[in-house]
Amino acid sequence: MIPNGTSPHQGVGVRVRGLRKALGGRAVLQDIDLDVHPGETFVIMGPSGSGKTVLLKHIIGLESPDAGEILLDGQPLHAPGLMDRFRLAMVFQSSALLSSITVAENVGLYLAEHRLHSPAEITRIVREKLALVGLADSEDKYPGELSGGMRKRAAIARALVMNPHLILYDEPTSELDPLIALAIADEIRRLQLRLGVTSIVVTHDRDLAFGIADRIAMIHEGRILAVGGPGQIRQSAVPLVQRFLQAEFKEPNLATETTSP
């Protein structure tokens, strides 16, 4: 049986070595080397199509690499029994809640399917986690009845129920308005501080990255360009990093021009 509890614990360290992956003949990841320390919030930032999500899918075992390896606390990801020792959770960009069951059933799915607790205990844990992400009154709703931000928070609650050692977030603030994006960022940071869980966040949102990261890796066309603290990344001498960080709209009068006669 997979162990589960509700007590805080130390997160797991992740080491990626020489990871390579080609999809449809195109190299998506090229010799990726990364070290994520236990308990830190590590952000992988880069433009769309740079290989961020593919990298995240490798770390959680949804994709197999062409070459290289991923180690959790020094153990290969596919080592027998590793998934019994470490619980990994992922918050998908699309939330990926099961649309045919309620929010509460979604959040309690892991516990119910692995029969980790009695139904009454599962209900209690689900309520607690939903309250933690501000969805206490949505347990009987179906995912289709929730807004984008609520679905994201329900997906975070579903990840928390696993009491994970490592949480992976795929574009957690995409398609959200700035206020909800801020709430989600707060949530990620609070969870990391409270539970000591290791978090890997994939995003192209610079505000989110610099707001929550202990360290940031910049990725471009499947290669890691720079790794360091937020300050180090801001000061990076790599031209592509500076281009990504400094990209802004330069036409403030666009709206005025289109509305004026």
């Binding site: 899918k57 959680i60 998934m83 998908f92 809640l97 692995h114 579903r158």
Partner: peptide, 9 residues
């Protein structure tokens, strides 16, 4: 959703 199931073992 099936990927989500896999991540939950």
């Amino acid at each position: 959703e099936i990927d989500a199931l896999r991540t939950m073992n």
